[in-house]
């Protein structure tokens, strides 16, 4: 790895109450990089995001941002630090309109190039539906709102959690079509994705989790498809 990572996880263990879900996970996201996070259901991918964001208890040194420990910060402080999330299942605010959802993170995030106009330019359909209730949109459009909501905070890092979940393949392509513009604006990303082929095409780095442990980690090109599949299923 040439440059210092923008976001790194060090020997992170976390879980829910008595149930431990992650065991000594290490991970480093390079500046302006895209890291693909793969693993079977229950491997700990969403748990890792929750731990990074402080939705689960973790310790100060376990998460660093540009080398600085941030593992002691509360969830609501992460956005100001420049870390935003596109949560699994989108989780739009149901009583807010499309535009109100977009404004939500913007008010508490950082100032920058991502504005309402730019998000509407990226996803023109959202401009048409700006005052509709968020729940009235199709799944793909809702996913665009969730992505736009994260962008509006002008983060340096976005955690994408299964943005293809429950969407038709053609819609998934539409959503992922926005990725080059997002990365082009200088944002680094960790993407959780079930479609290993897509991860191989898109990500520069790859981490595979199995039962809460990192079983594969490195530049995407270093692994064959068979190696990834083996790690994925933990054989």
């Amino acid at each position: 790895m040439s440059a210092d990572p923008i976001l790194a996880v060090h020997d992170l263990s976390a879980g829910y109450g008595d149930f431990q879900a992650l065991f000594g996970v290490n991970l480093a996201l390079p500046e302006r990089g895209l890291l693909g996070l793969v693993g079977a259901n229950g491997a700990g991918k969403s748990t890792l995001f929750k731990a990074i964001l402080g939705q689960l208890p973790r310790q100060r040194e376990m998460v660093t941002f540009r080398g600085e420990p941030i593992g002691h910060l509360r969830t609501e402080a992460m956005l100001k630090r420049g870390i935003a999330v596109v949560p699994e299942g989108r989780r739009l605010f149901r009583s807010l309109s499309v535009e109100e959802n977009l404004q939500m993170a913007a008010e508490r995030g950082r100032k920058g190039d991502w504005t309402l106009d730019r998000v509407y330019a990226l996803f023109p359909i959202l401009a048409e539906k700006r005052s509709m209730p968020s729940q009235s949109l199709s799944g793909g459009q809702q996913q665009m709102v969730a992505i736009g909501r994260a962008l509006m905070a002008n983060p340096e890092v976005i955690l994408f959690d299964e943005i293809s979940l429950g969407l038709a393949p053609i819609v998934v392509n539409d959503v992922y079509a926005a990725m080059p513009s997002i990365l082009g604006s200088g944002i680094s990303a960790i993407v959780v994705e079930q479609d290993i082929e897509r991860v191989r095409r898109m990500a520069d780095h790859l981490v595979c989790l199995n039962e809460g442990r990192v079983v594969l980690s490195g530049p995407t090109g270093a692994f064959t498809k068979a190696q990834i599949t083996t790690a994925y299923f933990g054989e």
């Binding site: 939705q55 609501e76 992460m78 956005l79 989780r91 605010f93 149901r94 807010l96 939500m104 008010e107």
Partner: peptide, 11 residues
Amino acid sequence: DDAETARAMGI
């Protein structure tokens, strides 16, 4: 609507 997501949005 969703307190956990609200926190992730900086609230």
